Computed example of a mutant assay.
Amino acid sequence: MEAYTVPLTTYLARAGRALSGVSVDDVSRAAGLTPEQVQRFEHGNMAVLSDAENQQLRRALEEFGVVFFGDDDRGGYGVRRKHSALKTAQLQNWEGEGGPVSEEDI
């Protein structure tokens, strides 16, 4: 599976956000964009983002656990989650352990 190296398409952005389960508000904040820019981009308006903004959106989605991959001999470009469902469940369980965060009394 080769890495996807061309600019993010509207379809991949929409699929990546849906797959990660992140809201438009959260991904736009992480990318330094407005929610309206992200929504317009996802609905097919490629011109709404500059090349730099496209990269910002891609990096934000990758931070939320999305992996983009390019064409290869097995199929076309696509998107997937960084971790399997089992690994994601384990990570969520680990994050919930230990109780509330407080100052250490050492």
Rank of each mutant, 00 (worst) to 15 (best):
G78P: 02
V24I: 11
Q39K: 04
D71K: 14
A3K: 05
P100M: 07
M1A: 14
A18K: 05
R14M: 13
S102Y: 05
G70N: 04
Y11S: 09
S28D: 01
V24G: 12
M1Y: 08
K87I: 09
G70E: 05
G21N: 04
T34S: 08
L19I: 05
Q37C: 10
S102L: 12
N54P: 11
G16R: 02
A52T: 15
P100R: 05
A47I: 04
I106T: 11
G21D: 04
D51N: 15
P7T: 00
I106R: 13
V101A: 07
A85D: 11
P35S: 12
T88A: 10
F41E: 02
G98W: 08
T9I: 02
L49P: 00
A30K: 07
L86F: 12
G99E: 09
Q37A: 13
H43E: 07
S84Q: 09
V22K: 06
F64T: 01
D26K: 09
E95G: 11
A3E: 07
K87N: 07
P100H: 07
L86A: 15
P35R: 08
A89D: 13
Q92R: 13
A60H: 01
Y4N: 00
G32Q: 14
E62A: 03
A52I: 15
Q37F: 08
E42S: 01
V66A: 06
R81N: 09
G98P: 08
Y77D: 13
D71H: 15
Q90R: 06
R74H: 15
Y77Q: 14
G65C: 04
F69A: 04
Y4H: 02
A89N: 12
R81P: 04
E97K: 12
A18L: 06
R74Q: 15
L61C: 03
I106V: 12
L19V: 06
E36A: 14
H83S: 08
L61Q: 01
A47Q: 10
A13I: 01
V6S: 07
